[in-house]
Design a protein around this nucleic acid. Structure first.
Lengths: 155, 155
DNA sequence: TGCCATTGGTTACAGGTGAAACTAAATCTG
DNA sequence: CAGATTTAGTTTCACCTGTAACCAATGGCA
């Protein structure tokens, strides 16, 4: 009978709970919220600020632009985060002799302190998330994520 | 020599680009932005609105609360999205005889139309994202994501 | 050298978003 | 059945975010 082989329409195929972009969004939100909850109140840090600290912690002396590249945040977000961090004495900005538009940024000792205290919390959160995956699966995840990240860059 | 075996401190281990929550966030953002760009201007739809349409398309007759559960949006987001959709005549709300607080929601024919036109775009975007993965890898991804989603629910 | 395009960064503005307060209806409890 | 509690949904408020406009410094280049 012909109708038994009728193809499903796209609208019928689109099941939100199975839709990859949706699942990624939900997962990312759950994870971000859980982690943010652990340091937001304790350190009064937003996610962009924390990213700036994380990258400056490992690579001091970057400019705002370089931070934007390293964190994939746009320059406005970086500007705001840096402004607040300088304000709270967690980041120090010193002028760049070569180019007066730039500022060389690095963590103050207070900033280092925050970094040192948050890092273990962040890593522990990551481990908790990965707890349900064995070493092999973690490798798979790593590979797949890397692949998807590249693909997603080109739309 | 002793110092050669010194353990790295957590702060040194935390490399933003390798940090799973960060990678998930970047990936989710890239994907959401790419897809949103394809329908936002064409249909004047926000992501929350589009989620409401997606879920009502397959399951008409839900209440706002049920939509919130199905989409994992909070009730404020659902309320706003539904208000705009009702306003643009894409969703119809009719009173629930049993409970005057609730409204039974479903797509209008205009809403159905939008749903039917967006679904293929959404599915095609998903396929593009998955283009770099073979069938086996897609299965792996599916499994891993499911696992992580469950884990992430409990923090 | 003087003009123009580019670049680093900030400001302004318009929406989006979550938490909490609020309203109204329903349900529970004595 | 009255009052207290819970539930569905909306509104408010304060904040976050992205885009675009802007400003100042730099780097071509004629």
């Amino acid at each position: 009978m012909a109708s038994a082989k009728r193809k499903s329409t796209p609208a019928e195929l689109l099941v939100l709970e199975d839709f990859l972009p949706y699942r990624l969004s939900i997962l990312s939100n759950r994870v971000s919220r859980a982690i943010a909850a652990r340091y937001a109140e304790a350190f009064d840090l937003t996610i962009p600020e924390w990213r700036v600290i994380a990258v400056l912690g490992r690579r001091p002396g970057l400019t705002a632009k370089e931070i934007a590249e390293a964190t994939e945040m746009d320059k406005v977000a970086v500007s705001r985060a840096v402004a607040k961090l300088v304000d709270s004495k967690r980041v120090a900005a010193r002028a760049d002799r070569k180019d007066a538009r730039r500022q060389i940024l690095s963590l103050t000792s207070q900033g280092e302190n925050v970094h040192a205290r948050i890092a273990p919390i962040a890593l522990e959160s990551e481990q908790r998330l990965l707890a349900s995956l064995d070493a092999h699966e973690r490798d798979q995840l790593d590979t797949l994520l890397g692949r998807l990240l590249v693909t997603a860059k080109g739309l």
